[in-house]
Design a binder for these strands. Structure first.
Lengths: 210, 210
DNA sequence: TCACTCTTGAGACTGAGTCTTATATTCAAG
DNA sequence: CTTGAATATAAGACTCAGTCTCAAGAGTGA
């Protein structure tokens, strides 16, 4: 079985974290760093996979063994946060209002995102549709992870088979994150990301009645 | 000036709708029909642009003069609805609560989407990431059109420069549309799309407090 | 040492999207 | 009706992302 992109062969926990695995992780993050640097220097479209591979010292073929797509070299690290997010939500108290539970759960993500380098990546994403699209795909994966968790918190109120509400809530929360992130990038990082997010969440759950 | 994909050279209204223009529109929609049929028959990935071009009786190069991407052959018609949506929102009474205004504005879109053929396209989209991604890009364009319109309805409450709320509201409404559409496709079209959308909108603006 | 497995590099191959060039086709004057 | 500018087209070269196959390393366990 050959390793597929985004797998670390740790489907079930081998007691020792696996030496093979650590190596893979290390290479992955190193290549990602190189790629991101090149993208920021020359632009995303202007940087070819061959250039990244050459600069990082591996073959083109190997690059695609570490990343499914060119975009994933920048966004690959988002993969894992979906599970963390889901877990954070599942740990919120059962009787907490869904929207509030979601707001708290997102703390995990906000923590990671508000690194100053995210500013550059954010700007690049705004100029690069394919990157933005791939970014959203990642978030859609998060969304799907959140849906069952949210659904459980709604069961009291008659959920007929295809209930649009859990997905709507998950997607709306993600929408708030997106809006907050956008505003944060626009402000050059001067505003507080967490505050912007809270503001967005509040505006959506109780829209100002003009 | 050569015609670019998605332009009909009617940037300003030439009084006669333009014979050239009508021809272009006609070809465009005919090619789109052929493409959609082939996609549904053989699958999106299994259908090449060459096949579409051959079947539709034009050259590969010409295909890309009508559609910027292969995905646009299915999604191109969404282009125009953004403006309609924005217009519909702008016509809602000034004192109406934003969220309610949005809900009504989306009627325009719901009308168009709830065609039975949308079911097949919806199913195909769920199996085709690139298509889904492109679809979301279209919606992002709608979102950006709605933002200024929503911002105007919030001005009373101190909008400091980078205000995340308008975008959050626009994106959240789109999220509801997405969730409703998903549920609708899951139900094989048996459920009422408009009803599902209303339900989603209600759940988000006043989440059930478990 | 002998398998066995996993990783790598090399390179062929498909297909999307861009671009250039040359040939119609349309349309507006004269 | 003809000339000339603008535009639409086909043809095909070209770049690059992503897939696939194959053969050669490199680590591990007997």
């Amino acid at each position: 079985m050959a390793a597929t992109p985004n797998s670390s062969a740790e489907t079930t926990g081998d007691r020792p974290p696996g030496l093979r695995d650590r190596a893979r992780r290390a290479v992955r993050s190193e290549v990602a760093a190189v790629a991101t640097r090149l993208f920021l220097e020359r632009g995303f479209a202007q940087t070819t996979v061959d250039q990244i591979a050459a600069e990082a010292g591996l073959s083109r073929a190997s690059f695609f063994r570490y990343f499914a797509t060119k975009e994933d070299a920048v966004l690959g690290h988002l993969e894992g946060y979906g599970q963390q997010l889901r877990h954070a939500l599942s740990e919120r108290p059962r009787q907490e209002p869904v929207w509030e539970a979601l707001r708290h759960a997102f703390d995990v993500v906000l923590e990671v995102i508000s690194q100053p380098e995210a500013l550059n990546i954010g700007r690049m994403m705004n100029e690069t549709p394919s990157l933005k699209a791939r970014h959203i795909e990642k978030w859609l994966a998060w969304q799907e992870l959140l849906v069952p968790e949210i659904a459980e918190r709604l069961t009291e109120s008659a959920a007929h088979s295809p209930d649009p509400r859990p997905r709507a809530l998950a997607a709306a929360a993600l929408a708030c994150l997106d809006a907050a992130l956008e505003a944060w990038v626009d402000s050059e990082g001067t505003e507080d990301l967490r505050g912007l997010f809270t503001e967005a969440m509040a505006a959506v759950s109780a829209p100002v009645h003009a």
